[in-house]
Write a protein that binds this DNA or RNA. Structure first.
Lengths: 117, 117
DNA sequence: CAGCATCCTCTTTGATACTG
DNA sequence: CAGTATCAAAGAGGATGCTG
């Protein structure tokens, strides 16, 4: 796997953060994990809509490798998997929440602009 | 150009934000613009280090199209270009600052872990 | 259900050369 | 200096089939 995208040696803190959360779906996954605490593979896939099974699995694996989330497998039939944030992963809450808040503003603004045009 | 990456119709606020700032270098560019207020093409390129001229130009253009930054050209010789945040772009400050803060924590943590190992 | 492996396609990105 | 144009290489991501 690749994974080293940014030159974090340079010390730019934003690049360091991006190194962890810049995957296409990672922030969205974290957003749902902050809201629900526990998520299953299937529920995440429903929530994300446009994210394929393959992509979702990849993003989850990277988050797990980076110790942002944990995965617990229940080997039943059908099997079930639980994902949740680690304590360390929870420190990302301010970042994700800031993103969510800005996005809400943005959505409002867009709605308003459509009315005006 | 492509540009529509996420299904923002679904209403997920995090996806809306990503739609604007998820370009590989956008957050980093915004970070420097928040610190310096005015940046030139060359200074940004120095700050970003690993970002090619081509990439930098692309990212700046997209940010400009999304009305996050403005570009002012001084047709001197040598020419000079100034980039700065729009008022709307400045509303991204909390997001970028949260990212910067988390990244600083992360860098500290990494330094500490290296000592321990 | 929750994934991994494979194949295949479309993008993204870096290198390079050129311009006002 | 601040870009743009072009080309080739690398990577991202979808579709599908297989597994426990």
């Amino acid at each position: 796997m690749k994974r080293q995208i940014y030159d974090c040696q340079a010390g730019c803190p934003v690049e360091s953060t991006l190194q962890i959360i810049s995957g296409k779906w990672k922030s969205v996954i974290l957003y749902h994990l902050l809201q629900d605490e526990v998520c299953h593979f299937g529920s995440l896939q429903r929530d994300l809509g446009h994210c394929s099974r393959r992509m979702l699995a990849l993003q989850l694996k990277e988050l797990e490798q980076d110790k942002i989330i944990t995965k617990t497998v229940f080997a039943a039939n059908p099997p079930k998997t639980e994902y949740r944030l680690t304590a360390w992963g929870q420190t990302l809450a301010p970042v994700i929440q800031a993103m969510a808040q800005w996005g809400e503003n943005y959505n409002q603004r867009q709605k308003h602009m459509n009315r005006v045009e």
